[in-house]
Design a protein around this nucleic acid. Structure first.
Lengths: 208, 208
DNA sequence: CCTTTCATACCGACTGGCTGGCATGTTAGT
DNA sequence: ACTAACATGCCAGCCAGTCGGTATGAAAGG
């Protein structure tokens, strides 16, 4: 009747990869952070959800905040890459703005948990980790602003507005989409992108 | 050397008002919630900051969540009132949209703590309290959307956009302002309102 | 080929600190 | 006497992080 005391590491299944453990912890955290927030999600919940233990967690991450940080950079890096690709490619600044809006909205639609966590739990980062995230976010914003400013300088966009303010307006529109956009709803993110650009570029007043 | 055992209620200063106690608890919570968030602010911190005790707190509020709820309604009610005043007054729908944007941005500038708490800590409300807040927020949004729709119906705004999407865009722009707008900075909320309406109504593309 | 050593990858019990809430006691006003 | 308006002490529960231990595979030594 001797109970099998499965202490220590469990048997490895074939084709086992330790990175798998890590990414399953991230996946669980992604779900739980999105649903309940960072503070209201305990490590216990995360490791149970991932069928692991605290030992496993602290083997792969320095701390709970470290995990949060990695989730944030994961998302920001893809967005930064995408934005750089659009800008470096050059072309009409108006088209660049259009594409940047689309990129931002697609990010919201395709990476909801990441966006939710980035927007709502960023404040829980501290020190160097916060600085790092803030720096990357600023880079993305700078790319947006650069495109708008280029449009103004080229005379393609009106010159009586501040690139800074206008850029914050556009970014806000896109960021806010995560609050109301339903990926399983009837309208596509493409519709949203089209209408946002129509409003921002051509204005709402009838009869151009 | 007898220590003054200040148990029970303290002496009342002249001109004392129990509502004062209540509003000081709210004031402390406002500061602390804004700075550290709801979960990371303990009741201990709040009552110490207000020079009171937990007994005082639970005399005036049902629970921590109750306090949060009251802060939220406080803000939403003023915004709802303001929006209703603009809409009921009638007039050109374009002007209504303009004024609604201004109202929203002024709210962000003048009631920063309320806005921060409303945006970031709303998720911590549950049950009936959450429903109540959501209902009021929806009312405000409906007033915005109504003005936009009225503009479209009257032919003053272009008809090839969805009032719903466009309204969410405008609301997002304004809501996001709290993330970057600095009340002590060089630009006024009036500048922001002017530029936002210019962009939304007339568009960014040069040469109308 | 066998054995020892070592690093990696975990396990799970534990702890000290903190938290929201409450029961009970005390004082001022009416 | 009664109520409103507090003060104070207390607690059960939870949480992030730690620590000593264990299983596994690979490399090194004999």
């Amino acid at each position: 009747m001797a109970e099998e005391k499965t202490s220590g590491r469990r048997r490895w299944p074939e084709g086992y990869d330790p990175q798998r453990t890590r990414s399953e912890l991230v996946a669980s955290a992604l779900r739980l952070f999105e649903e309940n927030g960072f503070d209201r999600t305990s490590l216990q919940q995360i490791v149970v959800d991932a069928n692991l233990t605290k030992g496993a967690f602290y083997h792969h991450f320095e701390s709970k905040e470290d995990l949060l940080w990695r989730i944030q950079t994961e998302y920001l890096d893809t967005q930064l890459e995408g934005a750089q690709a659009i800008v470096e490619q050059g072309g009409d600044p108006i088209d660049q703005v259009r594409e940047l809006i689309r990129l931002s909205l697609e990010g919201v639609a395709q990476h909801r948990p990441h966006v939710a966590i980035f927007q709502q739990e960023r404040r829980h980062l501290t020190g160097e980790r916060l600085a790092e995230i803030t720096r990357r976010r600023d880079e993305v914003e700078a790319l947006f602003r650069g495109a708008v400013q280029a449009g103004i300088d080229a005379g393609r966009l009106r010159g009586d507005v501040s690139a800074r303010i206008v850029t914050f307006g556009i970014l806000g529109m896109c960021a806010w989409a995560f609050q109301w956009f339903n990926p399983r709803g009837s309208l596509s993110i493409d519709d949203v992108a089209t209408q946002f650009t129509a409003m921002v570029l051509d204005g709402l007043v009838a009869g151009a």
